[in-house]
Simulated scan of single mutants.
Amino acid sequence: MPQQDRAYATREAILQAAAEEFDRLGYDRTSLTAVLARTGLTKGAFYFHFASKDAVARALIDHQNDQWTDLRERWRARGLDPLSTLWGLFAESADRMAADVVLRAGVRLNAEREVGYPGVPNTHVLWEKLITSYVAEAGECGQLREGVDPEAVARTLCGAALGARLISSATTACADFPARIREVLGFVMPSIAPDGWKLSGSQNAGDGPIRP
Rank of each mutant, 00 (worst) to 15 (best):
Pro2Lys: 07
Gln4Arg: 14
Tyr8Ile: 15
Ala13Asn: 12
Ala13Arg: 09
Ile14Pro: 01
Leu15Tyr: 06
Ala19Pro: 04
Ala19Gln: 00
Ala19Ile: 02
Ala19Ser: 01
Glu20Val: 00
Phe22Met: 05
Arg24Asp: 04
Tyr27Trp: 00
Asp28Asn: 04
Arg29Met: 00
Arg29His: 02
Ser31Asn: 03
Leu32Asp: 02
Thr33Phe: 07
Leu36Met: 03
Gly40Phe: 00
Thr42Gln: 01
Ala45Lys: 06
Ala45Ile: 05
Ala45Thr: 15
Phe46Ile: 00
Phe50Gly: 04
Ala55Phe: 04
Ala55Cys: 02
Arg58Ala: 10
His63Gln: 14
Asp66Gly: 13
Gln67Lys: 14
Gln67Ile: 14
Asp70Tyr: 13
Leu71Pro: 08
Glu73Ser: 11
Glu73Leu: 11
Arg74Gly: 09
Ala77Val: 07
Ala77Met: 04
Gly79Asn: 04
Leu80Val: 07
Leu80Arg: 13
Leu83Asn: 07
Ser84Met: 06
Trp87Arg: 08
Trp87Val: 14
Gly88Gln: 02
Leu89Glu: 10
Phe90Ser: 11
Phe90Pro: 13
Glu92Gly: 08
Glu92Val: 09
Ala94Phe: 11
Asp95Phe: 10
Arg96His: 08
Met97Trp: 15
Met97Pro: 11
Met97Lys: 03
Asp100Val: 06
Val101Ile: 12
Val102Ala: 12
Leu103Ala: 11
Arg104Asn: 08
Gly106Trp: 02
Gly106Lys: 01
Val107Met: 15
Arg108Ile: 09
Arg108Asp: 05
Asn110Glu: 13
Asn110Met: 11
Glu112Leu: 12
Glu112Met: 00
Glu114Val: 02
Tyr117Phe: 11
Tyr117Thr: 13
Pro118Ala: 00
Pro121Cys: 01
Asn122His: 15
Val125Trp: 07
Leu126Ala: 15
Glu128Phe: 05
Ser133Gln: 11
Ser133His: 07
Ser133Cys: 14
Ser133Val: 04
Ser133Leu: 15
Ala136Leu: 04
Ala136Gly: 08
Ala136His: 08
Ala138Phe: 05
Gly139Ser: 03
Cys141Pro: 09
Gly142Glu: 08
Gly142Ile: 03
Leu144Arg: 03
Arg145Ile: 11
Arg145Tyr: 05
Glu146Pro: 01
Gly147Val: 05
Val148Arg: 02
Pro150Phe: 06
Ala152Tyr: 06
Ala152Cys: 12
Ala152Lys: 08
Val153Met: 08
Ala154Asn: 06
Arg155Ser: 15
Leu157Arg: 03
Cys158Gly: 09
Thr171Gln: 13
Ala173Leu: 06
Cys174Phe: 14
Phe177Cys: 02
Pro178Asn: 00
Ala179Phe: 15
Arg180Ala: 14
Arg180Trp: 10
Ile181Pro: 03
Arg182Met: 05
Leu185Arg: 06
Gly186His: 02
Pro190Trp: 08
Ser191Lys: 15
Ile192Met: 03
Pro194Cys: 03
Asp195Trp: 13
Gly196Val: 04
Lys198Phe: 15
Ser202Ala: 09
Ile210Arg: 09
